[in-house]
Write a protein that binds this DNA or RNA. Sequence first.
DNA 1: CTAGTGATCCGCT
DNA 2: GCGGATCACTAGA
Length: 202
Amino acid sequence: MSSAALLPAAGSLGFEGAPHEVARRLIGITLLVDGVGGRIVETEAYDSSEPAAHSFGGPRPRNAALFGPPGHAYVYRSYGLHWCLNFVCRESGHGAGVLIRALEPTHGVERMRERRGLDNARLLCAGPGRVGQALGVDGSFNGLALDAPPFALLARSEDRPSLEVEVGPRIGISKAIELPWRFGEKGSRYLSKPFGRSSPRG
DNA sequence: CTAGTGATCCGCT
DNA sequence: GCGGATCACTAGA
């Protein structure tokens, strides 16, 4: 049996914690939507205390889910085209979240290829908009709990004991660019962009 | 590999 | 009007 224990992990991820801690813990966790998805290899943390966050400036209709209970989804539309998935953190009313930026495809790869109209596994989920498209996430998922279908979060199996996490500045923002709140699995070739300069292989 | 650009919608000033 | 927590595509190093 291949995978040792793929156990539900939603209860042990500590979504009530700070977003940069949750973002780090999520690396290596498997995310599935209706059974389709893969290992989380890249995340970013956002908090209402800094101006890059959608929650900065307080609750509004669009960001309401971010101010809801932790362990739920916040889905927003990016540039009028793409759907991006976040996990809500901290306590209700705070407005913190973790953006899922990239997955290593492991489950339902054919389904993801169809949805993305793309053959290259490396690019299937390499970016938040690509993750949304590959997993079939749209605005109707906004506010759903992460510990119940269609979502599933599975603990790391022990096939990768030496998981190393890299840290760096967040991508695609113009404010609070100094915060090192982007996290990624070191050496993964499924990142949306490489971190500093290591070996560009994988 | 990096840099530039158009697409396309919604929330905010 | 303006500008995004982006992506696909093109051109050039």
